[in-house]
Design a protein around this nucleic acid. Structure first.
Lengths: 187, 187
DNA sequence: AAATAATCAGACAAACTTGTCTGACTATTT
DNA sequence: AAATAGTCAGACAAGTTTGTCTGATTATTT
């Protein structure tokens, strides 16, 4: 009996996840993945018809990891404004834990101008889930700056992505601080 | 007598510029560059010791192009608030003209987690010049939201980068509109 | 017990990667 | 006129890439 998290499939995805995110998709070869995962090449291609499909699994996994981390961060916090701020603080920790590798969805699109339909779809789906989080929180606010839920949520989402990519570029967390200061001006 | 813009060196850089930005750095081979530039491989390596050095030239060129475009956009406009807004509109046109390829500095760092020192330095230099533009404009404002020049300029810069990457992801200009709406709330 | 699903190791294909080198030729400068 | 700088075409090295295929072995399910 083999448990889910030691299965060959899981080994492959978790190794691909680590390597794609750390080294980039294009610079990570199938051979490296199977070697570090300790599985046969045929096993990888048994589970994933192509590298592209493995990439989709990687993106799904990244979102799940982010959601789990955020959920834990927000535990017990009900105030929407505080929850939004905590989301940025969660980003700080995420980037620190992950060597300032930025947002995997943005990165995968930056790396693939050919625009694989499957990968594109998953990346955008993940981004939309992030946007929805902010919309949901903004809806709970008593007073909404600008008087439009979507406009204000989108403003926060822009700060969030802006801070994420700038942290990646500068390899430091100051852009998150800048974003928090921007939030203070906005609220 | 050979003019500067038809020289072999210029041919190489302009071709590399086009291909790096469109296809991505890692997916563009030296062989494709020399073929499309119509030059010999030895000529490329005569001017640029390595692909890395060519990349630095590419980043410099991208900044110059952006600056030229922005300067033209701002011609005759003196009001700092208006100049900031125009900068976002310039970004719209830039992205539309360039197939939504995003910011070349951010992208190159997203593509190269190995962090080539030369490339990293140039990318950050370019980003700092962009930040300085916003700082200079904010300084001219009569009333500064939040009462700190740097904080407000950084907020705008975050919106700028956030909008740029989101436009790249979604392949549409709505994030720029969102950023302009965010600016309205901020001001 | 038989059939199927999952896994293994690794060879192979066909293409691509950056960079070096040869050797010749032309243009420019001293 | 001689020396240097620039350019050419292309072979070559040593490595990489994704994906296919062989053939065998083990696990699971029917």
């Amino acid at each position: 009996m083999i448990t889910a998290d030691t299965s060959v499939r899981e080994q492959i995805v978790s190794t691909a996840d680590r390597l794609f995110y750390k080294q980039g998709y294009n610079l990570t070869g199938i051979n490296q993945i199977i070697e570090e995962a300790g599985v046969a090449k045929a096993s990888l291609y048994y589970h994933f018809p192509s590298k592209e499909d493995l990439c989709v699994a990687y993106l799904k996994r990244r979102y799940e990891r982010w959601l789990a981390m955020l959920t834990k961060f927000l535990e017990g916090i009900t105030d929407p404004k505080e929850r939004i701020i905590k989301c940025f603080e969660c980003r700080s920790e995420y980037l620190l834990d992950n060597d300032f590798s930025g947002c995997s969805y943005i990165r995968i699109i930056a790396e693939m101008p050919q625009r694989s339909a499957k990968i594109n779809k998953q990346a955008i789906l993940n981004k939309e889930k992030q946007r929805q989080f902010f919309i949901d929180e903004v809806k709970k606010l008593r007073r909404i700056p600008g008087n439009s839920v979507n406009d204000f949520a989108n403003a926060i989402f822009l700060l969030f992505d802006g801070a994420t990519v700038q942290c990646q570029v500068y390899r430091e967390l100051s852009p998150i601080d800048n974003a928090l200061k921007a939030l203070k001006i906005l609220f």
